[in-house]
Design a binder for these strands. Structure first.
Lengths: 130, 130
DNA sequence: TTGGTTGCAAATCGTTTGCATCCCG
DNA sequence: CGGGATGCAAACGATTTGCAACCAA
């Protein structure tokens, strides 16, 4: 369970509600609209404005991480200890996470070769799951 | 030199102008606004609406390829024979292309392992160039 | 009390689109 | 001539933001 206090954020009701959504959801990658609708279902609605603000604060605090798998909208997931990459089914939108040491290692070597001080990376595979 | 006819597109003045911009530019990755301004400089202005339409047609025809390196806006580049990946300087926006066989090979293996029929991929390294 | 937080609605900004006009074949 | 292409301005949709009311410490 993540801590708002540890993240340097006042413990408010909206922030707790949103954090709960992330921890309760079977789906790990949520759009602001997913969060909005989940809160509606829970009878604890919040405004979209607040959801956007909270999600941005969470990201700055390192609680969650954003992804732009589609140019249309961002999705967010709780930060995990392992840094994993993603593969996405173009038809269904299904997201599968994976971690690969060969890729991790190789990207560091490439960055080194090119004199790039590596800060972040994005590795996404798109296709169709059998 | 790319061919509009071969791409199944009528050879119109706006489309030729835009294709010329891509082929003349030292910078390979252009936003719609980059194109817009380059056309202004060339005294052959086009409306942004047309630029967006042409760029989308070019992409569907396989003449150019779009990238969303930043969530803010797309950039486009002529399709090259080699499929390369990108590293980006977070500070300057400088883009460097690279091709790596180990990555290419490994991503196919990973897709196979997970039963993903690989269609496309995105591999971007973000950091600071020395 | 008081400064940070929220709701609401308006503003932003990249991108798309409807429509009348124009141009390529 | 006829259908696709273009310019213009309006529409769109995700995200941000100004402001007044509200809540946590």
């Amino acid at each position: 369970m993540k801590s708002l206090k540890k993240a340097g954020l006042i413990k408010t009701q909206p922030r707790m509600l949103i954090l709960d959504i992330f921890e309760a959801q079977e789906k790990k990658h949520l759009s602001t609209n997913d969060i909005y609708m989940a809160l509606q279902r829970n009878k604890t609605p919040l405004s979209l404005g607040t959801i956007y603000r909270v999600v941005n604060q969470f990201e700055k605090s390192g609680l969650i991480q954003s992804h732009h798998f589609s140019p249309d909208n961002a999705v967010y997931e709780l930060c995990a200890a392992d840094n994993h990459d993603h593969m996405i089914d173009i038809r269904t939108g299904k997201i599968v996470e994976f971690h690969d040491e060969i890729i991790e290692k190789r990207q560091k070597e490439i960055a080194e070769e090119y004199g790039l001080d590596l800060v972040d990376h994005k590795f996404i595979l798109y296709g169709y799951f059998n």
